[in-house]
Design a binder for these strands. Structure first.
Length: 204
DNA sequence: CGTTAGATCTGCT
DNA sequence: GCAGATCTAACGA
């Protein structure tokens, strides 16, 4: 059966809802004719001007974050510490988005291993999954979801979603306590995994 | 220019 | 758990 990309209109409504709905979705990229995909296991929501931890806090527009002000369906890729991170832009009016922090490798694991130069921990972190899926800022910042390069499919359904504090924003005052990070409970393909691995990796 | 901050990763202790 | 690597863009002189 041929897979069909899903309707992404849910990204246009609530960012927090969209973040949770993205868990389990399958991201597929086609880079230089090579297909790779993974199921989303970890995301973080960034709520634009109201969120001190977001690049777009206080409505500040820079060359780097300008893509966040585009309507939902665009992809915002930014570089940090020599790594790339990928966001799905949400809503139309606000500069909000969902950071894809980790995926469970599916198609093309051998390609991911080659790109990463290792066979373990292929995509359990924001900088890792972009490298595994072949995403870079030069070529892919501003592209559209369900365009020619990146598509998302229905994928799997998490048994239980866990909300935790976000990671790497220790200097963001009150925003450090917001529970805007969502993971598939029991799935080991998340950053800083410490829990107990579920028998089905947390999928239904 | 030079300095600094940033939603990171890896390896070592 | 912590230090070091590594790179881009913003900002001030």
């Amino acid at each position: 059966m041929e897979k069909k990309p899903i309707d992404i209109s849910f990204l246009g409504r609530s960012t927090l809802d969209a973040a949770q709905q993205l868990l389990g979705k399958e991201i597929e990229t086609v880079i230089d004719g090579e297909v790779t995909s993974g199921f989303i296991t970890e995301v973080e929501a960034y709520l634009g001007s109201n969120d001190r931890a977001a690049h777009t806090f206080d409505g500040k527009v820079t060359k780097k974050n300008a893509m966040m002000f585009e309507p939902y369906g665009h992809i915002y890729v930014y570089t940090i510490h020599g790594h790339n991170c990928m966001n799905f832009v949400t809503t139309t009016e606000q500069a909000e988005g969902v950071l894809i922090r980790a995926v469970e490798p599916s198609i093309g694991q051998n390609i991911m291993a080659e790109r990463r130069g290792r066979s373990k921990n292929l995509s359990d972190g924001p900088g890792k999954l972009t490298e595994a899926l072949g995403i870079n800022r030069n070529d892919h910042n501003g592209m559209h979801i369900n365009g020619t390069i990146l598509k998302i499919y229905g994928g799997k359904t998490p048994k239980k979603i866990e909300a935790t504090k976000r990671i790497g924003i220790d200097n963001k005052e009150e925003a450090v306590d917001y529970l805007y990070r969502f993971i598939v409970k029991g799935n080991p393909h998340v950053s800083r995994f410490k829990g107990i691995k579920d028998i089905d990796n947390g999928w239904k």
